[in-house]
Every structure is written in C-alpha cells, then in structure tokens.
Computed example of a mutant assay.
Amino acid sequence: MIKIGIVGGAGYTAGELIRLIVNHPNVELDFVYSTSNAGNFIYQVHDDLFGTLDLKFSSEINKNVDVLFLCLGHGNSKKFLEANLFSNNTKIIDLSNDFRLNADAVFQEKEFVYGLPEAQKEKIEKANNIANPGCFATAIQLALLPLAKAGLINSEVHVNATTGSTGAGVSPSATTHFSWRDNNFSVYKAFAHQHLGEIGESLTALQNDFSNEIFFIPNRGNFSRGIFASVYLDFEGTLDDAYELFDNFYKDAVFTHVSKSPVHLKQVVNTNNCFLHLQKHKNKLLITSVIDNLLKGASGQAIQNMNLIFGLPQTEGLKLKANSF
C-alpha cells in the first residue's frame, strides 16, 4: 500500500483528496496535518466523511510517507518544505502555484514536473515531484493543446471562463457569501489571472513560436463547482479538420473526451473528466471546455498524477459518476 500524507487538510481540495484516497484500493491515508484542527476528527470538518473515516487531524508529520500532498495556500508550500525535510523517497505533489512556472520548478534540489497528463504523461511517470496545474489553466490548456501541437495558434486567443464558488477556497469572503453570490455574476482579475503564466509556458513547449496574447476574462458563477470555458481563435481549416486534430490528440486520453454535441457542467461535475466541444464560425474556431474545478482542476488530477508515478492505471480510484440531476 502507498502511504499518503496530506498537509493543509481543512480546505475544499483537501476534502476532495481525502474522499478519493479513502476509496482508492492501492493507498493508505497515514496522516492529515492541520495546525488549526489537530486532535479533531476529520469528519468534524468534512462532515460527509462521517461513518467513513475515523482518523483525526494530526499535529505530527511522518517524514517517510510515500506521497505527500500539499494542499496549502499559494506561497505556503515553499515555506512548509523549508521548515520540514522529508525522505528522499517521498514523492511530493503540490496543489498550489508555488512550483508551476519554469522559474520555480527547482526548489531545494527537487525538480517539479508540471502535472498535466495530457501534455506530458511520460515526464510525469518518471517524476519525483509534481506541480499540479491550476483549475482554470487545466480547462483552458485542454482546449488549446491540440492546436499548439500542430503549430496552429497563430492569432490572439480569447477566453471567457466561469468558475463555481469553491474556486475561491473554503475561507469566507465578501464574494463567496451566499447572499452575494446567489442570483449574481461577476468578472474578476480580467486579463491578469495568475494562471496565464502556466498556460503560456505549456503552449510554448508544444509550439515554439507561440507568442500571441491570451485575453482571459474569468467570471464568478452562482453555482458551487465546475468550470465552463469558452475559447476562440483564428482557424483556417474546416470543422471536420478541427475534430480530426482533437480526436487524434486525445485518442489515448482516459479523462479528456471530444464531443460532437454541446457540453455542459452537469456532465463532468463530481468526475475527473474534461469534455470538449468544437464550433466553427467564419474563420473562428470556438472550443468549449468543461471540468470540475475541485477534481480534474485539482484533487482528481493530483491522484491521476500519483497513479502515473506509481505505474497504476490512471483511472484507479477515479471511476466517478457525474450527477446529471
């Protein structure tokens, strides 16, 4: 059994990670570290785990676990690793943005591989440390990777994407309060979202001459979870050409699927899937991309990366069902 440790156990991504781990046939949850909840039962914070898990949050860390998942706020993973040394055999999977960019990929002699399986499965399989992609970044990159691989991103890219309230984290804020969020819709961080950097680096890795600007408008939706991204750019080929390109690129992908019918969030929420749909209007190609921000956009993808590192089927522990109604 693969022994798992989780640091930062009270948030949404940690809660999803714990739920996946307790149902994964090849892993054992060794500890969930939390300074604010040490000594409390995990189900007292993640109450859907009542009757499933009797483990308590720990104030101690086992530095010899096989895998360490870091579910900390951005900037805190580096601080934690500076203060805590782990075995050279411990694989680290970080769910923050601390190690996603090339400039941050080497830390304390550890090299972090960007963990987007559809882009670099072979590198992940050989990796010791993973920088898990951002949620918006995952949805947007999966919409663009086939075009970058073919060298066909030759215009500016426009993205309008909406995320659920869980994308803002578990700590309450003015824009996550129910009375504000319900029946409401808003834009935030227009043209300046922190995920743009990792998106650009992934596209450049596939298309060396990529230099076009990505105009990204993120939105807050009045729902709990999921990301719906609409991405469009110039494309000279036909719609059939586009579908052939995407079908070939994702033919071996176990979680990313190309649909000839329009896609919607209920198809993917509570799963590790990404569904893509293509439309052509004059010289523009529109790609719609839908994911669950907490699963394919965070904890599910982290488990997928762990499975790849340990030679397990990518679907192990991730055979999840969407709630259609």
Rank of each mutant, 00 (worst) to 15 (best):
F99T: 02
A137R: 01
L101W: 03
D234G: 10
V65H: 00
A168E: 08
V65P: 00
N272R: 08
R220I: 08
A150K: 12
F31E: 02
F50Y: 10
G151W: 08
F246R: 03
Y12W: 11
L206G: 07
L278R: 02
E122W: 07
V170G: 00
V22L: 15
H158L: 13
N23F: 14
F185M: 13
K126M: 11
A322Q: 06
N102I: 12
Y12K: 04
N184S: 15
I199Y: 02
Q304C: 10
L145I: 14
H158Q: 14
V269S: 00
G15K: 01
K78F: 04
F246S: 02
V269K: 00
I303F: 04
T256V: 15
F69I: 06
E111S: 13
I93G: 03
F249M: 08
F41R: 06
N154C: 10
S324N: 12
F235Y: 14
Y250V: 12
F235V: 04
I199V: 15
H177S: 12
D48K: 09
F310K: 04
L53K: 06
E201G: 09
L68A: 04
S211F: 09
D66W: 07
I199P: 02
L152Q: 08
F41D: 01
T35Q: 14
A139C: 12
F178E: 10
N132P: 04
K284L: 14
K78I: 08
T163M: 15
F310H: 09
L85P: 03
L95R: 05
I92G: 00
I287Q: 00
L278D: 02
N154D: 11
F275E: 05
L72S: 02
S289I: 05
S186N: 13
H74M: 09
I214Y: 03
F249D: 02
N132L: 10
F223D: 00
R19D: 15
V269G: 03
I6K: 04
N307Q: 11
L278F: 09
N219L: 13
G75K: 13
H24V: 08
Y43T: 05
V187P: 04
T175R: 11
Y33C: 04
Q207P: 05
S36H: 13
G300R: 01
D182C: 12
R220E: 07
G200F: 06
E28P: 05
T52L: 13
D247W: 10
A322T: 06
L85H: 09
V290Q: 05
V113S: 02
F136Q: 02
G311R: 13
T238V: 12
Q267P: 01
Y43M: 05
E122Q: 13
I217L: 13
S59T: 10
Y243G: 02
E109G: 09
C135I: 04
A150H: 06
V263E: 06
N307F: 07
K321Y: 07
Y232S: 11
S87I: 12
M306Q: 03
W180K: 09
Q194A: 14
L72A: 03
L144A: 05
G75W: 08
N132D: 08
